[in-house]
């Protein structure tokens, strides 16, 4: 008897409803249990309503107003303005570039590290921990650390270059966005590595052994076994990575303050600028909502693709 034979067949079109399925009336005891369960849930629900949905709703209302402390209704003006504002469009494009660069970089480096540390290397536990440390470090510390490393006059990197007779580089002026991407990859790769490591260890060794017997080389095994079987992990990394990259704020604020010029003015940094520097709360709220809508659409598309490819 196979395992499949022992599993009862469930009609997926029928939602699981014990009371309806059993055709029974809800007993007083059962009703009390349900009420008790809801009573225990209510604090959490109230917490989310008060701390998440209420501010969200409040922000939605604010996005239709203008003014700091005496808001005036302006309808959809803020949304229309944001969609045609070259500063906003520029910051959105910069954010897309940043998200794409940091995601691709983190995935490639994280996967390479995971493949390396999945081998029986001596000291691999220490190495894994060391590689994970940047991810566990506060973004403020990471920002200040790299700011000091990359400073063209007193930074460690240029001092090292000078020491070996090479000219110093102005990383934060000549390639500011690429530098931010590099810092993000440095910070995130350890986390991505851990996810891929978990995925790699879930792949049965027998699959590799069978392929070896069939004559598959290293590259073929990687391409035909590792990559497809890591697809759900890759999908998760992509989904989470896109959301967090689109919301990046700390790095541009601390390392470059959005500059030079507007080179690293990521979208959320621009929202911050509109809120606290330009004092245009309604406009900033509209921008934040447009970003939320974009991330929701992107996540929805990713989920649809994931479901179609059976990744979720």
């Amino acid at each position: 008897m196979s395992l499949v034979d022992t599993v009862p067949v469930v009609d997926e079109g029928t939602p699981p409803s014990p009371t309806r399925r059993q055709g029974r009336r809800v007993t007083p005891l059962r009703r009390k249990q349900i009420i008790t369960a809801y009573l225990f849930l209510i604090p959490a629900v109230v917490f989310f309503v008060a701390m998440f949905f209420y501010p969200l709703f409040n922000e939605l209302l604010t996005s239709f107003t203008s003014g700091l402390t005496d808001p005036v209704p302006v309808g959809f003006d803020n949304y229309l303005r944001a969609l045609s504002d070259p500063v906003v469009i520029h910051s959105f494009l910069v954010t897309l570039e940043y998200a794409a660069g940091s995601l691709v970089g983190s995935i490639i480096i994280g996967l390479l590290l995971a493949l390396m540390l999945n081998q029986g290397l001596r000291g691999r536990v220490v190495l894994r921990t060391m590689i994970l440390v940047p991810y566990m470090t506060s973004i403020a510390i990471v920002g200040l650390l790299w700011r000091n490393i990359l400073d063209p006059s007193v930074g460690i990197l240029n001092t090292a270059l000078h020491a070996v007779g090479l000219p110093g580089q102005e990383w934060l002026n000549t390639a500011p966005l690429q530098t931010l991407i590099g810092i993000t990859v440095w910070q995130e790769s350890g986390y991505v590595m851990m996810l891929f490591l978990a995925g790699l260890q879930a792949i049965p060794e027998e699959v590799y052994e069978a392929s070896k017997i069939d004559g598959a080389g290293v590259w073929t095994r990687f391409r035909r076994i590792t990559v497809p079987l890591l697809a759900p992990t890759t999908f998760f990394v992509l989904l989470v990575g896109v959301i967090s990259s689109m919301q990046q704020f700390g790095l541009p604020y601390i390392v470059t303050n959005g500059g030079p010029g507007d080179a690293t003015s990521l979208f959320v940094f621009q929202v911050y600028q509109e809120t606290f520097t330009n004092q245009d709360i309604g406009y900033a709220s509209a921008m934040a909502f447009l970003l939320l809508i974009f991330i929701l659409i992107l996540s929805f598309i990713q989920m649809r693709i994931g479901r179609r490819k059976d990744l979720v």
Partner: peptide, 14 residues
């Protein structure tokens, strides 16, 4: 030197 964008104005003084 080319100024480097930051939140602080104290770079030249340093």
């Amino acid at each position: 030197p080319a100024p480097v964008a930051s939140v602080s104005y104290s770079g030249p003084q340093k």
